[in-house]
Simulated scan of single mutants.
Amino acid sequence: MEDKQMEKAVSRKLTLFCVICGVAVLVLMGATVIRDGEREWKHYQTQYREMLLKMIKKENNPTFYQRVEEMKPEIRQIVVDEWKTVDRCTTCHLGIEDPLFANAKQPFTTHPNPELLKQHPVEKFGCTMCHGGQGLATTYYGSSHQPIDNWPITLVAKGLMQSRCGYCHKDFEAIKADRLIKGRELYKEMHCAGCHLIDGQGGNVGPDLSNFADKDPSNFAYENIEGPHSKQTWVMEHFKDPKRVSPGTPMRAYAMNDDQVECLTSYVLSLTQRGFSRPYSTKVKADFVPHRVDALVPEAGLSVDAEDEAGSNQ
Results as ranks from 00 to 15, higher is better:
158 K>M: 03
160 L>Q: 03
160 L>V: 11
161 M>Q: 14
161 M>N: 11
163 S>W: 12
163 S>V: 04
164 R>V: 01
165 C>H: 12
165 C>G: 05
167 Y>N: 10
167 Y>F: 15
168 C>V: 10
170 K>Q: 15
170 K>L: 15
174 A>M: 14
174 A>P: 04
176 K>L: 12
177 A>Y: 15
179 R>C: 06
181 I>P: 07
182 K>F: 12
183 G>P: 11
188 K>H: 11
188 K>S: 10
188 K>Y: 07
190 M>N: 13
191 H>L: 04
191 H>F: 03
192 C>L: 10
193 A>P: 01
193 A>Y: 13
195 C>I: 13
197 L>Y: 13
197 L>S: 11
198 I>E: 01
198 I>M: 09
199 D>N: 00
200 G>K: 08
200 G>S: 06
200 G>Q: 07
200 G>P: 08
201 Q>A: 07
203 G>Q: 05
204 N>W: 11
206 G>E: 00
207 P>T: 06
209 L>D: 00
209 L>N: 08
209 L>V: 04
210 S>E: 07
211 N>E: 05
211 N>K: 02
212 F>E: 01
213 A>R: 03
213 A>D: 09
214 D>V: 10
215 K>R: 03
216 D>Y: 09
216 D>M: 01
217 P>T: 08
218 S>C: 02
218 S>G: 02
219 N>M: 09
220 F>D: 10
220 F>I: 03
221 A>R: 15
221 A>V: 14
223 E>M: 03
223 E>W: 11
